[in-house]
Structure formats: C-alpha cells, structure tokens
Design a protein around this nucleic acid. Structure first.
Length: 423
DNA sequence: TCTGGGGTCCTAGGACCC
DNA sequence: TCTGGGGTCCTAGGACCC
C-alpha cells in the first residue's frame, strides 16, 4: 500500500486557463492579478523571463508592463475553479486514490501501476491536455515531499520533458545537489535562513542532516520533511476531505473605508457570503469574528487593528443570524477618536460542525422556516447569479467594492458568456 | 530560607502553503 | 494613487484543576 506518489501540477494555471479561451494570449507575456487588481499572482513563461516576480504589486511594474506590452488580466476565479474541476475529472480515470491538494495540484497514488512510471505520467499529461487544454508537469516519488521536488525539477529542467521520476536513484542523485533548500515543500524563507546559518544550502545537505538537528532548527515539521527527503513516508495522501476548522471571507475595498455605515455594508456582504459558503458545505458555525485594519504599508497614517468575536448560540448557517452578529461586532469595535481609513475587512467563522451534528437547543421555534428561506435564497442566487437577492443592510452602495477592471468572461459557467464560434 | 507536581484546555503568534 | 485571499499545523504560555 505504499507505491509511488505522483504530483500533477498545472503550468502557470490561471494564465493557461485564459489561453484556452483566447489563443491570442499564447506566446506573449501575460500576468493575472490578485483580487482587487493588486499583485501578479500568475505569470506566463514570457512574463517570468521579463523578471516579473510572484506577488509583485502591479503599481511597481507599470513601467515594465508598458515597455514590453505585457497583457494584464484581472483574476476570474469562477473560470479557474471550473477548469480545475475538469482537470481532476480527467485524472479520475487513472487512479481511485487521489488528493486534490490545491486549485492546480493533485497527488495521485500510483500503487498497482505496472510498467514505467514515467510512461504512465506521460499518459496523464496527455489526457489532461486533450480534455481541458491545460499543460501540466508531473513529479513522481516515494513520498509526497519527493514527488513535489520531482515536480519542481520537471518544470525547471527541459531534459525531463515534463515528467521527473524521483523513485529512480540516478535521477535523485543528479537533481538534489542542484536544488536550493528553499524549493523544498515546507521550507519557507525563515527556515531557509536558519538552515543557511547551519551551512545547509542544497537539498542533499538537508536530506543528510541528522533528524535530531532538524528538529532543533525547525520543529517536528522540519524533522518530517528531512525524513520524507530520505524516502520515509510521514505524510499520507488524504483522499477523504478532512473536517474544516474555520472559514473566512476577507476583502480589501477599492478605497479605504472611513465611516461606520460603509463598514456595516461591507461586513454585511462578507457575512452573507460566509453564510453561503457554510450552507454549501452543509456546516454550521459556533463563533464569528469580525476584523478590520488600516493599511500596514502606511505608517504615516493613523493605524488601528480592530477585531471582535461573539459566539453563535445556537450554532447557525443562517444569513440573518450571521449578519446580525457581524453588524453587532462592527459597532462594538468601531472607534471615532481618529480619522482611520480601513483598507481591509473580514469575517471569520470558527467551531464549525456538520449541520446535523450541531447540538439542539430549546430556542429553535421558527428555525425550520428559516432553513427553508435560506434554501430559497440560495436557489435564486445560484440560478440568477450571486447577489441577485441581498439583505437590506448591504444596501446598494458600491464604494467599497473590489476592483476587477480586466476580467475575462466566465466562459464555462455563465450561459451569457459562453464563447460563440462563427464558421 | 523555604513555597508540590502533574495534567488539560485554550489562545496567540509564528511559519508555511497555494 | 496603487501591495490578495484563504487555509493548516505547531509551540509556548497562561488559566485552571486535583
């Protein structure tokens, strides 16, 4: 039961999704921005070659964008989420056991696969490419950490043609001295700096570190990483979705929020969305936290980080309950002593349970009616688009809304936006 | 001068991921 | 002018208990 593991990772996923529907984007530098059109979160190979970094703020690269004619797109998560589902569907034919790790990565258990692993992987790439149009790379290894590392090698080194197999010692021995520790899954910049102080710079050096020292430098997390690099499996494939612990909806408004009414309106929208997410997952929440804070990049302006939590009794996924609690939190946390301009606000839900597992209370008269009302609300918004029906306190003001000035159509999920081909 | 021992639970903060 | 959003896990330290 411990055959090799493959990691299939989509190349420049958001950019690749856009290219499927607009071939004019192929071969040119393209970047996709984060929410609010803030930072570059996906880059085509051509954009990477121009030196655009992951997470770089758009306002710092305006010049480069103009000079090189880089195509800039707002993010279209509806499209990417749907394309991600299609990629996973294509992979289902290959193995019964897989873990969808993120929107663009899936681990696949290769136990029982015969023949050369690399040939199987090539078949998976071809299937995904044919069925979705998305290019991928595959890494194979005896552990998840080695599969991730193999994937990195497959992406960076053209000799692999998109598939690197780290179950082969020869391949590991070639790659591991050439890769920096910071590329290892679980080693971030802080740990990288601590390892450098120990003289550990490459993946081989990390692999050959004594486990006890790894634990001292990092925590059990780093110790596990070293064991996994040695081929000892510590992190298993999670093919059943674990119970979520919390859930959040946070946004940066298009311009700073300076008055309590606008904050109430924004937080109402976030709580509404959070309630929708809860119901979509069949969960209820036991606690809600509202927070808002000023721009941390502007030390010259009045700074404040406000947050307020309340428990939800009974536990709930009802939009009215959540909005009412959230608005109470806003009013409790609001201050007028200085002219604050809040650049981020959010709602976080905790103590989540499946709705059927939630404790019953004495005060449930009339709740059945609300469950039906929420069902009707979701049905309308599913059919006619999010925000067709909203609560009054969200209002019609738009001044806190996100920026998304360069978003492409939702080609695959909105009938009005499906591409039309004329022949 | 001396001031038990051991356990659980909760929270805040750090680090990391995509 | 302009810097994303949504998660997980681990640890240390405090409160509390017997």
């Amino acid at each position: 039961m411990s055959g090799p593991i493959a990691l299939i990772d989509c190349n420049n996923f958001y950019v690749s999704c856009e290219r499927v529907f607009d071939p004019g984007l192929v071969g040119i530098p393209v970047i996709v921005l984060s929410n609010n059109d803030g930072c570059a979160v996906a880059r085509s190979d051509e954009a990477k070659a121009l030196g655009i970094k992951m997470g770089e703020p758009l306002h710092l690269i305006r010049d480069k964008v103009r000079r090189h004619g880089i195509k800039v797109l707002s993010s279209n998560y509806t499209l990417y989420g749907d394309m991600s589902r299609r990629v996973v569907d294509a992979l289902h034919a290959f193995s019964p056991r897989m873990e969808v790790y993120s929107i663009d990565e899936t681990f696949v258990d290769l136990s029982g696969f015969g023949g050369r692993m690399a040939d199987q992987a090539a078949d998976m790439r071809a299937a995904v490419r044919t069925l979705t149009g998305i290019p991928t790379c595959v890494g194979i290894g005896p552990t998840k950490t080695l599969a991730k590392l193999a994937n990195h090698a497959a992406k960076k080194n053209p000799v692999f043609h998109g598939v690197a197999d780290f179950t082969e010692k020869r391949v590991r021995d070639y790659c591991m001295p050439r890769i920096a520790v910071g590329e290892v899954w679980g080693v971030g910049s802080r740990t990288e700096a601590k390892l450098a102080a120990q003289g550990v710079k490459t993946v081989v050096e990390l692999r050959d570190m004594p486990l006890s020292l790894a634990r001292k430098v990092g925590t059990v997390v780093l110790e596990r990483t070293v064991a996994e690099l040695q081929g000892v499996r510590c992190i298993d494939i999670e093919d059943v979705e674990p119970q979520r612990k919390g859930m959040a909806v946070t946004r940066s408004p298009g311009k700073p929020i300076a008055d309590v009414d606008t904050m109430v309106s924004a937080v109402t929208a976030h709580a509404t969305r959070a309630a929708e997410k809860l119901r979509h997952h069949g969960l209820v929440a036991g606690a809600i936290t509202v927070f808002f804070h000023t721009n941390p990049h502007r030390p010259d302006l009045p700074r404040r980080h406000a947050s307020k939590s309340v428990t939800l009794k009974p536990m709930s996924a009802d939009t009215f309950d959540l909005v009412e609690a959230a608005v109470r939190c806003v009013r409790a946390a609001w201050r007028d002593d200085k002219p604050y301009g809040y650049t981020k606000a959010g709602v976080m839900l905790d103590d989540l349970l499946p709705a059927e597992a939630a404790p019953r209370t004495l005060f449930e008269f009339g709740r059945e009616r609300n469950v039906r009302l929420m069902g009707a609300l979701d049905a309308v918004n599913d059919r006619f688009g999010r925000k067709t029906l909203v609560l009054g306190s969200e209002g019609f003001r738009k001044d806190w809304h996100l920026k998304a000035e360069m978003r492409t159509p939702r080609y695959t999920t909105r009938i009005a936006e499906v591409p039309v081909i004329r022949v």
